[in-house]
Design a protein around this nucleic acid. Sequence first.
DNA 1: TTGAAAGCGCTAACAG
DNA 2: CTGTTAGCGCTTTCAA
Lengths: 352, 352
Amino acid sequence: MARRRQAVTIKHVAADAGVSLQTVSRVINEEPNVRPEMKERVEKSIDKLGYIPSIAARRMSGSRSYLIMALNDRDRTIADWKARQGADWVDQMLLGGMLKCAESGYRMIIELVDTHSDHVERELNAALVALQPDGVILTPPHSENPLITGLLEKRGVAFARIGAGSEGAGVSLVMDDEGAARLATQHLIDLGHRRIGFIAGSPEYQLSAWREAGWRTAMQRAGLPTAGLREGGDFSYETGMTAAAKLLGNKERPTAIIASNDQMAMATLDVAAERSLAVPFDLSVVSFDNTPMTIFCQPPLTAIDQPIAATASRAVELLIAANRGEELPTETEVIEARLIERGSTALAPDGG
Amino acid sequence: MARRRQAVTIKHVAADAGVSLQTVSRVINEEPNVRPEMKERVEKSIDKLGYIPSIAARRMSGSRSYLIMALNDRDRTIADWKARQGADWVDQMLLGGMLKCAESGYRMIIELVDTHSDHVERELNAALVALQPDGVILTPPHSENPLITGLLEKRGVAFARIGAGSEGAGVSLVMDDEGAARLATQHLIDLGHRRIGFIAGSPEYQLSAWREAGWRTAMQRAGLPTAGLREGGDFSYETGMTAAAKLLGNKERPTAIIASNDQMAMATLDVAAERSLAVPFDLSVVSFDNTPMTIFCQPPLTAIDQPIAATASRAVELLIAANRGEELPTETEVIEARLIERGSTALAPDGG
DNA sequence: TTGAAAGCGCTAACAG
DNA sequence: CTGTTAGCGCTTTCAA
């Protein structure tokens, strides 16, 4: 293996421009106290020689590593990848995060950590020390793991928590689950629906409660009842089937159902088909998350889009700002969610 | 921002174990010439202090960076991510590559580069210098870009080319497209089909020719004709529609169709539905790639699985071996492909 | 506003 | 088998 010494280093640039290393360093770091003409001269040399600073060397000398680490739950991520059912959480994180990183010369690196393990701290610490990232993005369920947030805080690494409540250190970013649920419910109400069922998600996730709350609020405001219209699941297809079957088995069955994720919505579609209920004519369905499966369903699902890319992008933005010395906001940032209308919603049937 | 100096360094370990830095270095690099008792003593200290070597420092001192860079085409990758149609190429690369990396303390980092740009070299060089990866994995169409392979070769970075022919530097890994096509064809022949249509992919990709060749070979061996049974597309849904329409418009229409990717297979399904042909009873369909959409099709598509994860995993394995000084194989490595049977294939209709 | 010196944590090369 | 020395490329002191 060839010894891969750097071809052109800061020394070469300094020599070429006839200045000290220090001046070059100041220019590439956009520090003050450099005369414009000096700066220009250095920049010309940099361009001419095609100089790119080495991340490793920069990190060594105690400055930034230009690395943002995105932490995901190992088991769940690997399971999603293996299942190949189109769950594109990681892709959306990359889409939002990596591109935002690139704007400032940062890179995003995905790291998998096992939340449930008793050596989370060891694992995380190893990654932290090996990579020395300038910032860490936490995704559920890491976002609410005090072992993780505690360690990050102790080590003084800037971090963002996605999908978690606001208490605790680090910036918190959430999608507006409650508002989104209200939006979905209102959409159905506007279509003339009055009996709108709701399939809740796993109570282990905070967002399940937020989504349910949004539905209740919208129904209440419209003076519509919710009694007998709420069933619970755990985000799986199977529990979606059970919940949908209960809802559609009532003698006064709902004309619309909101499912707390795409899997359960798909289950609802299948239960409806079993009972010869035509979607969207006899039954409208709205789901949450808007993963790729929504477009392949029959009919394609109207869904609340979970803005993962936008959230990751914003998280990176804040983390990079923090590294520049800016203060991180203490308030939770709320990223707006949109409703994507597809074929599973329509006007309520007569008497809806 | 806190100055994030490393908490415990090789020095601390050396002091704790009462040996020189060098001995510690030898232990963590599993180098020879360390007495077992010394080694044990050092390892004890490492455990006790929770020492993790800094990647940056290791890279600095001219050794490995423990980084493998996976290069993907920027436009295509971003388009896939934005489309959210379940294309999971990147995920499968991560699944195979990242996990294999982790086994040896490496990390995989995704990098997007624009192949068609005239400054590919600049872009790639920047990534190479900034990150100093120990190995690079090239995916199509980068795998066949001489600007890229040339630069990598010049810089002496080990690299693997996925999905490209064998000529040129670097290890070459391909899925057995030809064999896979034969497998798919034979599967249909075994089901009693005799008129088996084929929709070819874009001629810009080598694999299109390989897939077609496999179909032709299998047909020939079985003494079956191919005349009038071949149409061409470019992997898009639209061209798939056109091709399928032509094939099914023939008076002697095929009883089975092999499409060179999932998109075109889905188009074939839709064309069949338009013409009231029941799949798989009137028409069997087999596709290539096995992306997530296959399971959401009606009926779910029988498909040739493209073993991206296995390929990435093997590429990483070879790259890491190369870094240990082992020779890279000069022969192209062929990764076997499997046929996943789902609902779109069945016995040929009478007289098939 | 600029430059010189010191050192980050580690490994290569060379001694012993 | 083990230790010493020098330096990787850069940024941080500190001095001019």
